[in-house]
Design a binder for these strands. Structure first.
Lengths: 196, 196
DNA sequence: CAATTTTGTGACCGCATGGTCACATTTCGT
DNA sequence: ACGAAATGTGACCATGCGGTCACAAAATTG
């Protein structure tokens, strides 16, 4: 595939691919090792469990997480390539990557969810984070999305402002939501199932 | 690539690939023709410019667009595969697809943007739509995202509720919509089915 | 019927990929 | 210094890809 093939990697790194097989047990090991320190969720484990976290309000916490993701993805083309690859390929490597990330991410989101019981924090943050991811990945192929430029700082400032706008509706907003929908969600989420 | 290669398509369709070259001018033509009627933005041209649009409040309009996208992607695995492919591949086909889509999408979003001058509608809707897209595409590889299940109706109901919640923060829109219609839509949508 | 055009198929070519191999060079322990 | 690991490289193989070709079977036309 694209830029994450063994040949491409070995070439770009200027080494023979045999070495990758020997020292990283193939691309599986290489990918896992590299992603360990490149991916936000696995490299910012401190940020996720730190004491600073609990002092900031939930909205600001989510915002800084999103900002960090934008930063990390924005300046690392290879990381974007890998995350595109994760979207397409299904094997034990991608499964393991997803596993690690989901574990870290859930510990982060669950703590915030506990702080703001009046809304479905995981779902809302999922939309926002997934949106950021898609637009980051999409910037390779398309220069605009709904008219918003994806390859300029100005475009990403607009997007970040939009995220701020969405987050503003965090703590105080959902109190007006009908109790019916709230209760519906509560009962629904209580039947969450673990990864098979 | 994955399931959108010429060999795979010809095989799945039970025809020789030569025919695809002869009658569709290669995969370029086939892809363009097929996507013309599969993609939301190009097949719902009526919805985008219809009179019904201008009667609904902006928020409801966006929501129904998002709902339609979820529907379309949810029940069409091949469409998801193509949109994954669009994320990775850069050539004149993907460029043309992006062009068509962006044109239709902008005419939709610009009209809404005109109605609500107090916020950056394109940016906010970009986040939401991109989020939906990413989670749809991601459902192939990962079963959960931030703990939200991506392969069950229940998970997508939560996500749709999150979208509703975000849309509520639109300037003056959903306040006009009565809680009754809100409740009606909620119960109505909860009976639909999809299987990503 | 016969000739020509349309519709269809399997084989083939060039190329890039993932993966392995034999072999050269360097480093290191004794 | 010398033999044994460790480190490194290019060639090689099988496979799957996109794309093209020669040729067979229908269908159409006179």
């Amino acid at each position: 595939m694209g830029g994450v093939g063994i040949n491409a990697i070995a070439n770009r790194a200027g080494v023979s691919k045999e070495l990758i097989y020997r020292y990283f047990d193939g691309m599986s090991g290489l990918m896992l090792a590299w992603m360990q320190e490149q991916d936000f969720w696995t490299s910012h484990r401190d940020f996720l469990a730190s004491g600073e976290s609990s002092q900031q309000p939930p909205g600001a916490l989510v915002l800084s997480m999103l900002r960090a993701q934008i930063e990390a993805l924005g300046k690392n083309e290879t990381l974007r390539e890998v995350r595109r690859w994760e979207l397409v390929e299904v094997n034990d490597v991608t499964a393991q990557l997803a596993n690690r990330r989901e574990k870290a991410a859930r510990s982060f989101i669950d703590r915030i969810d506990g702080l703001t019981p009046d809304m479905d924090v995981p779902a809302v943050v999922s939309i926002m984070l997934a949106g950021v991811l898609y637009l980051m990945l999409r910037s390779k192929t398309e220069s605009h999305f709904l008219g918003v430029p994806l390859r300029t700082n100005e475009g990403w400032e607009r997007l970040y402002a939009a995220l701020e706008h969405i987050v503003q509706a965090f703590p105080q907003d959902l109190k007006q939501e009908s109790l019916a929908t709230l209760e519906a969600r509560r009962t629904a989420t209580s039947s969450k199932s673990k990864e098979p």
